[in-house]
Design a protein around this nucleic acid. Structure first.
Lengths: 114, 114
DNA sequence: AATGCTGATTACTTATAGGTAACTGATATA
DNA sequence: TATATCAGTTACCTATAAGTAATCAGCATT
């Protein structure tokens, strides 16, 4: 018989960590949202997210592509046109985002004092 | 008439940013979960979260207290006993956490390959 | 010919999150 | 008396996130 002087909760902590690894950071969810709102081009996304920089956007777009959340399409026009779009898998984050946004709206009202 | 060459989405981005400011980082949600599972004492919480350090735990507990998500109770026994517990406001994060955990479970299966 | 837009990349710097390890004073146990 | 536990604090260091600013080639506009 071991004495366990705490309550085990790793079964919840591990998947939570997995999720946070993908979506945490300042920019990933904002970028997904910007694309979902219809911003497809690099500069459109950049302009739609206040304070983001070119460098950070480029890096985060790569991360999101690697995580299979968005895809990058190159149209062989002249000049070449590049479009970003969310993949179906990104849709699985919709409820998470929705909950976060609702929580943020309420938090601003209740705690940050409007 | 202004030409707007991107789609506005700050109405969503601002509350999302507010929410991420409170819960993002590696440790805040894990700590809330550990407390919700019944770990009340400092060392219990510490032991229930793999890899967390004393220093980080102390700092994050202060942050969570400031954000009105937990409270710290000092029992004037001998020796003094300190207990952390979640405040009702922390319950408003339950759905967010639930969605994140579910997403993490699925992500591990689908993308990380079990 | 000069300027500006596209989708970026690069080098450099700063800020912040987090990790390491030692240590505290009060109390309790062996 | 020695050791351990409790709830932390402190100083120092490192790794990563993010910001600043310049630059790129290709093309279009003025």
């Amino acid at each position: 018989m071991e004495k366990r002087n705490y309550v085990e909760c790793t079964k919840v902590l591990l998947p939570l960590r997995d999720a946070l690894d993908v979506i945490s950071g300042k920019w990933k969810l904002p970028i997904l949202i910007a694309i979902n709102h219809g911003n497809k081009r690099f500069r459109e996304i950049e302009r739609s997210i206040p304070k983001i920089t070119t460098k950070v956007l480029a890096k985060e777009l790569k991360d999101l592509e690697e995580h299979k959340l968005i895809k990058r399409t190159v149209y062989d026009s002249s000049p070449v046109l590049i479009e970003y779009s969310t993949l179906p898998y990104a849709g699985t984050l919709d409820k998470v985002v929705e909950e976060l946004v609702d929580w943020g709206i309420n938090h601003r009202k209740q705690v940050l004092g409007k």
